[in-house]
Design a protein around this nucleic acid. Sequence first.
DNA 1: GAATTTATGATAGTAATACTATTATATTTG
DNA 2: CAAATATAATAGTATTACTATCATAAATTC
Lengths: 238, 238
Amino acid sequence: MIVILLYLQTNILSMINLLSNLKISVPDKIFIKDPESSDLGKRIIEHSILLIEEIGFDNFTFKKLGAKIGSNESSIYRYFESKHKLLLYLTSWYWAWIEYQLVFATHNIPNKKEQLFKAIEVVTKSIKEDVAFSHINEVVLNRIIVNEYSKSYLTKEVDNENEEGYFAIYKRLITRLSGIISNVDNSYEYPLSLASTIVEGALHQHFLKSHFRTITDCDQDITPTDFFTNLTIKVLNI
Amino acid sequence: MIVILLYLQTNILSMINLLSNLKISVPDKIFIKDPESSDLGKRIIEHSILLIEEIGFDNFTFKKLGAKIGSNESSIYRYFESKHKLLLYLTSWYWAWIEYQLVFATHNIPNKKEQLFKAIEVVTKSIKEDVAFSHINEVVLNRIIVNEYSKSYLTKEVDNENEEGYFAIYKRLITRLSGIISNVDNSYEYPLSLASTIVEGALHQHFLKSHFRTITDCDQDITPTDFFTNLTIKVLNI
DNA sequence: GAATTTATGATAGTAATACTATTATATTTG
DNA sequence: CAAATATAATAGTATTACTATCATAAATTC
């Protein structure tokens, strides 16, 4: 019993350690100065998440953020050249964090089907628990992704920014999921489209669940994870 | 032969007649003054579509539109209280037009499966031909929907605007498609989520095809219609 | 056909946004 | 302790997203 507890504790501690030491890496062209490198930078990230959730990205300004953190607008501009870049930072961070969980949660599952189910769960679930020891509130960040992610790429600058690598992490996540799908059914013709549909579609179902309840079956009992797991089972005939 | 030609011609003519007489109806709270009621109103609609396509919705302003149509910014404000309302108008018009096509194209198909395939085609295809005799360019409007539709509901005001009925047409379209799905397989548990996933997902696949080619299987040969038709066949086991 | 209503145009003005630039003042580091 | 670096404060600009007012043109009605 003590051995088991110790073992569990060691695992939990090593995971905490891993999570707090592991620096989620965001393409460095997105920021002017790395917000992880200073106290002000971390406060910018922490409170931008809370403020965007509160008033929405469209109403969010650096001036309002400055007021919230008792800092000056001009200081925030030393970290990000625009609020759009800050959104790119937050979304890249989020998808890197999801990718990390995907790799971590699936890598020691030998059964390919179970691996796929786990992967779908990771990319479609709503985040309920915050990893409390960082300045980033993942629960709130998840809600921002649902409401604002599309705005990061639905722009006239998307092709240039894509070339600069701003969407690399997201695309790598989709590619990974696609690979896990193909591992289960190598003959399926549309693994990339299925993967991108699951990830984007799950965000959309979460949105509908909160705002357009009449056009989704998702509710308190049925989750987007249930819907997309069922869909994938049928599409891959497993 | 003459009889057939005459018959075809009659059909085409009656369709042209139907299309040019049929006024696509948009919830009237969206506008201040109905743009269909005047020449200036029609020019506003016609050129807003072209200008939004050209510079993107984020960079679009009534001042720029005024310059384009040789009219004054203040005159445009007499039709729409904001550019957001104009986007709601354009998207409502688009979905009403798609809904019309859905009903028209499916209503005389007796076979339920074929009806579903036709419905999926209507909601997932990219528009290639403009119905030339109106001021609305449907090909360009379709591209605007792909790039801008999400912005119409990803706002802090979505719940209020939803109560005002601004998204009623879109929701009705999804409900219709859901009904067609249930007609084919009444035991399927997620007809609404599948319908909303097909419609939103098709827009997303069209976007990926143009901008993030590495995370979709759709290209010149494979269309979003192919992908979602195949997916639906497998999900409903038909 | 004059009077009146309605539609559009022109101009001005406001508060907020999305920044840039400059200078001053802390804080950290060699 | 000097020098470098980070942050704060202030000012300024062009643009946006409107509102308000007044003038004029066109259409409608009496």
